[in-house]
Design a protein around this nucleic acid. Structure first.
Lengths: 172, 172
DNA sequence: CCTAACCTTTACGTGAATGGCAAGGTTCGG
DNA sequence: CCGAACCTTGCCATTCACGTAAAGGTTAGG
């Protein structure tokens, strides 16, 4: 099947549509992300077909998550991820040097970037949790009124209304 | 100052720009949300100025959160929140009936809606947490390599590269 | 009563993120 | 070597979520 040539698995390269299908994207979107500098296919075929490796798939999947799930804009994602130009530069720097301290620095930078990504995600989670709190407060308010009704099945004139159900027109 | 007429506080009504300033929105956005049926001002002035009450403010704030923080589309927000037509209808139904069971039903519907909202938010949080997991995995991978370097300061030929830093060109 | 500062509706403009199509080149199984 | 199925770049169209401006009415303080 997959011929194990010599060092490890050659890890088959995928064409754009295969990638799109696998990740639930469209070729168009993938090309657009490339155009914005968010990723670059690992290789091109003889006839210039884009060819993606497992690494690209991971990156694309993360981009998709940031976009579709986290709702970040593509520009913001660009900052968060570091563009392909910088990525290539760092790869080169890492490969070029033998120096352990320098390699450490490069790795530490990469870790910092990930930390920033995680922080962004946690911030967002925090905001969503705040919204849940508010929603729960409204929920509790409604339930309080429900309990009130349950207590006195038919009340002649209700003292005030339920949150979200202003039944006393008062002025309007 | 605020004349307490008789029942409670008349709760001053705000004009659109005041609302916008308070919530960090623009009049345009507020009008647009109204146009989509997401909210309707509590009242209009003599000369047709939109006037918002505290209830409107809460709703608007929630809409803003769903949009800016949670990243939902306005159409989706419309479904989640129930449009103003349905809201008005329910208010009327609630007000119209004396029946405790019916009021209970209306309140229960409102609670259900809130539960759906919370579920949507929790779903999103779940997806974000999954992304954090992935990011942490990458982070751990990088740190593993950093530790490796720390162990053997100057290694002649590295066995393989770091995640995200393919230093062995192998074929490309 | 006047006027500045606000409001109204209507309508057109814009940036982001795609969709869709055309014209042509590439791959690949048969 | 051929055709179906895919790929390329290029470009225009569209949707969403507003921004902005115009033309005119309203409010509130002095």
């Amino acid at each position: 099947m997959t011929q194990t040539k010599e060092p490890a698995v050659p890890a088959r390269l995928l064409k754009i549509q295969e990638v799109a299908a696998e990740l639930g994207l469209t070729p168009r979107r993938i090309r657009y992300y490339e155009e914005l500098g968010l990723l670059r296919p690992a290789a091109r075929s003889e006839g210039d077909y884009r060819l993606y490796d497992a690494d690209d798939l991971e990156r694309l999947s993360f981009i998709k998550g940031l976009r579709d799930d986290a709702g970040f804009g593509l520009a913001e994602i660009g900052q968060l991820l570091e563009d392909e130009v910088a990525r290539a530069r760092n790869r080169e720097r890492y490969r070029a040097t033998e120096s352990a301290p320098e390699r450490r620095a490069i790795l530490d930078d990469a870790v910092d970037r990930i930390d920033r990504q995680v922080t962004s995600l946690r911030d967002k989670i925090g905001r969503l949790e705040a919204m849940i709190q508010e929603a729960d407060a409204r929920r509790a308010h409604l339930l309080a009124h429900r309990a009130e009704i349950d207590g006195q099945p038919v009340d002649p004139h209700d003292p005030d209304a339920v949150a979200g159900f202003r039944t006393t027109p008062s002025d309007r």
